[in-house]
Design a binder for these strands. Structure first.
Length: 320
DNA sequence: ATAGAAATAT
DNA sequence: CATATTTCTA
């Protein structure tokens, strides 16, 4: 009996709090690398286009606006949505702290001529990535897998295989993560500071050096996971669901599984990690890869609910 | 061009 | 105040 309770509790930590329908962005975007798709013989090109997805989203969620960033993949389709990309990005015109400017090279004057669609999932002002426990877990797994030595931003990012993750995101997080690890090692054992939050529940990387630096020489590397040798070790107690060991380039893009609401058992676990803005508190969860439900969502913390940046009244701009 | 560290921003 | 992003430097 207690076992179940324990397990349940533990699992709770990770699989707790589902994004309510409001938060969910049921976008079924197919972000499968063409090559991979080809290799796996996945359906070449699903008839569903961003348009469909968008429409579906709207139908489902009345007032949820799908960000163009999320919805628009690389898609040459000329379905131009006049979607108001509410990107109130006021450029640095706020000499508050006079950051020293070294090179006087002026950036090419911004043109409104640039194709917004060409930018696709790139170079768009993404809100602010929130490292949800799940995301962090992936991160930790990958880092652990690479060994601290080979764990560099770029590689990590690639292995994590999360849609909207940028190298910068990873780099930043890695920075913090390393600091945390050092702190912990320095303090000998036990002593998860309450200020650790996210990292606290991280199993800590087992300093194991594995994986040679044989990075795929070029495209196409399928990363044959075969790996029988089983390095073994890593076993980090805690919750090991089935043998999902370390996912090489994480196969499945993150999915989100809707869940019913249960009593909010607060009092333990994490605080609510939410998107940068929006004050609703929902946690993220989910973990089941590959099976039912095909809802994907970009974890870039993309979701413009409402009340974007309440910056100073920056009127003007948007001159096109 | 990328990783790491420090400075800002939210 | 913690955490994420943007600089800046090696």
């Amino acid at each position: 009996m207690s076992e179940e309770a324990k397990i349940d509790d533990a699992v709770s930590d990770w699989e707790d709090g589902l994004p309510s329908a409001d938060d969910l962005t049921p976008l079924s975007q197919c972000l499968i690398p063409l090559e991979l798709a080809s290799a796996f013989r996945i359906s070449p090109d699903p008839p569903r286009t961003a348009v469909d997805v968008t429409r579906a989203s709207r139908t489902t969620l009345s007032s949820l606006r799908v960000s163009s960033a999320a919805a628009a993949n690389f898609k040459p389709f000329a379905d131009d949505h006049a979607m108001p990309d509410a990107d109130a990005a006021d450029e640095g015109s706020d000499p508050k702290k006079t950051r020293r400017a070294n090179s006087p090279d002026d950036p090419t004057v911004d043109n409104c001529t640039d194709d917004q669609s060409t930018a696709t999932a790139k170079a768009l002002k993404r809100p602010r990535l929130v490292w949800t426990p799940q995301l962090h877990k992936r991160f930790v797994d990958v880092v652990a897998h690479l060994g601290l030595k080979n764990a560099v931003p770029k590689t990590i990012m690639q292995l994590m295989n999360v849609e909207g993750l940028t190298r910068e995101n990873v780099a930043s997080h890695l920075q913090k993560y390393r600091l945390y690890v050092k702190r912990m090692q320095g303090l000998s054992n036990e002593g998860p500071s309450p200020s650790d939050h996210l990292f606290a529940s991280t199993p800590l990387p087992t300093q194991s050096f594995n994986e040679s630096s044989s990075a795929g020489p070029s495209h196409g590397n399928g990363i044959a996971n075969g790996s029988h040798s089983s390095v073994g070790n890593n076993g980090s107690s805690a919750n090991n669901h089935m043998g999902m060991s370390i996912p090489m380039p994480y196969p499945p893009p993150p999915q989100i599984v809707p869940m019913q609401m249960m009593g909010m058992a607060h009092g333990h676990g994490y605080h609510g990690y939410e998107a940068a803005h929006s004050h609703h508190s929902h946690h993220y969860q989910q973990q089941q890869y590959g099976s039912m439900m095909q809802q994907q969502r970009d974890w870039s913390g993309n979701k413009y609910s409402n009340g974007y940046p309440q910056h100073h009244t920056t009127q003007n701009n948007s001159k096109c």
